[in-house]
Amino acid sequence: MISDVIDNEQVEILLNDVLESHGYDFLEYSHASIKRRIIRLYGLDNFVSFAEFRYTVRTDKQYFKRFLEEITVNVTEMFRDPSFYKSLRNDVLPVLGTYPFIRIWVAGCSTGEEAYSLAIVLKELNLLHKSLIYATDINPSVLEKAKKGMFPLTYLKQYSENYLQSGGLKDFSTYYTANYSLAKFDESLNRKMIFSTHNLASDHSFNEFQLILCRNVLIYFDKELQHKVFNLFDGSIEKLGYLALGSKESLEFWPKAKEYKRIKMEKIWRKL
């Protein structure tokens, strides 16, 4: 990847176009990351000039779909950070289990691996029947994949190890059926999921939740946008509800952080 084919000014121009023509605001994303994604896509799709790239992004609706999918990071895993899921299983979900009804928001769910992981834990705690998982992402095409609940079989060995380390109780393979190169997850899991587009940079709160999971999404935002999103979450979490972040993310520098209490060593905070 040649790193200097598009300069900072051109990145700015392109992102302004995207906002104007398509209504997606990436101007408050971490610059180095988004620039790298843009240059990567430019190279992947063999553009010969910035002008051509810019024109295509601005005017070609079909191509913009691809642009959106490729400049956002959609890498995810089932039961990523097993100790995090162990804490959800042992510390957080049993508390939520005392409620008559559990509403969870997986913000930035990408292709759905975390939503399915969560559904599995809820099922094993016998709470899935009274839970609803709202899984949202900026990107409609990843949501289509998430709805299907089919993940590449090659990753399942890793997922199964993660699951066991996180305190999983069953044989992981009972949750899916292998179908050629894909593992299709049990439909009882996604019956309790609602998939919808939601843009954390521009959309508002749409409900109140007892748990919000937003992991490895905020690392792509600059500090101002991170704080905006924390405020959005704050307005969407019930009192005594929980907020869960990625392993390198923190509430620490957000002014209202003192109204939240961290749970053990994990990146989980409880609203006081």
Binding site: V73, V75, I219, K248
Partner: peptide, 8 residues
């Protein structure tokens, strides 16, 4: 400043 990235 440092940015972390969980891409491919």
């Amino acid at each position: 400043s440092i940015s972390l990235d969980y891409s491919e």
